[in-house]
Amino acid sequence: MLDVQALTKTFGDKTAVDRASFAVDRPMMIGIIGRSGAGKSTLLRMLNRLNDASDGAILFEGHDITALRGAERRQWQSRCAMIFQQFNLVPRMDVVSNVLHGTLNRRSTWATMFNLYPQEDIHRAIEILDRLGIAEQAPKRAEALSGGQQQRVAIARALMQDPAIILADEPIASLDPMNAQIVMEALRRIHEEDGRMVIANLHTLDTARRYCDRVIGMRDGRIVFDGTPAQLTTGVARDIYGAGAGFSEAATSTQIETLDQTLLEEAKAEALV
């Protein structure tokens, strides 16, 4: 389905992504991990064509995505939806209208100017919100929702595009553990029930292991690991993050139980001092 070939992105004399290559032969849920500045976000932005590649190629079902321009490029961006860490919603607009923005690439300029939507699109938007457990939020302003609810609205907007691929750039980085779990479970269900490919940049190892079929590790712009969650050992993770022997996965955990245990151990240590 997706074949990334020696994909490279340079900004001046800095190489953000360095000859990244991987192939995906069927819809999977893939997690990309690595420390800040490893090139994860730049890689996703090239896949979506928000950024042009400096070198290399992206093939999807045999078509060269890196060669697309104009309307064909916008059409690809509809098939390859993007979800961002900061949600990118219109704060003062109601939730259902934010979701309907997922149809902008296939609507006329006239309809967009006057905010006119077909009745079937409105019904579909509400159905998607219901699927994500937030249909009752449809008439509210987006800014009135919690962070977890806003991220689910962003997921709903992506689903309105009916994409083949969903790219999620640190979708839970700004969420508390409970909302992070809800968002990741929603993405996993979308992958399993719809047969869509999901590629998510993640900042925690436990999340990658729990929800993903495959994990790609990046360091200094290069792919240094590509394997199953079971192969993502602490030693491998230490190499991906360039960390020393003191590297602790608990410090990056989103599991509520792990966080509680970590806080308990810290409290005990302080009591002994």
Score class of each variant (00 low, 15 high):
Lys140Glu: 15
Asn201Leu: 01
Ala180His: 03
Asp206Phe: 01
Arg152Gly: 00
Pro177Glu: 09
Val215Trp: 03
Met184Asn: 04
Val198Cys: 08
Asp176Gln: 02
Val183Met: 03
Thr234Gly: 12
Cys212Ile: 06
Asp226Asn: 11
Glu170His: 00
Ala200Leu: 15
Ala230His: 13
Ser146Cys: 03
Met160Asp: 03
Pro229Arg: 02
Gly147Asn: 03
Leu159Ile: 08
Leu232Lys: 07
Gly227Lys: 10
Met160His: 02
Thr234Asp: 14
Pro171Ile: 03
Pro177Lys: 04
Ile165Asp: 01
Asp213Leu: 07
Glu185Cys: 07
Pro163Gln: 02
Thr233Arg: 10
Asp194Met: 14
Leu202Phe: 04
Val224Trp: 09
Val153Tyr: 02
Arg214Met: 07
Ala186Phe: 06
Val236Pro: 12
Gln231Gly: 14
Leu159Arg: 01
Pro171Val: 03
Cys212Trp: 00
Met160Glu: 05
Gly195Asp: 10
Gln150Val: 01
Tyr211Leu: 05
Val236Gly: 09
Asp206Gly: 05
Ala142Asn: 10
Pro171Gln: 04
Val236Ser: 08
Leu145Phe: 01
Asn201Phe: 00
Arg152Phe: 01
Ala230Pro: 12
Ala164Ile: 10
Asp169Leu: 00
Val198Lys: 04
Ala186His: 05
Ile182Tyr: 08
Leu159Pro: 04
Ala156Tyr: 06
Asn179Val: 07
Gln151Met: 03
Glu170Asn: 01
Met197Val: 09
Gln149Trp: 02
Arg222Leu: 14
Tyr211Val: 06
Glu136Trp: 11
Ala230Val: 13
Met218Asp: 06
Leu232Ala: 08
Arg157Trp: 11
Ser174Arg: 08
Ala200Tyr: 04
Arg222Pro: 12
Val153Ile: 10
Ala230Asn: 13
Arg210Asp: 15
Glu185Met: 12
Asp220His: 10
Met178Tyr: 14
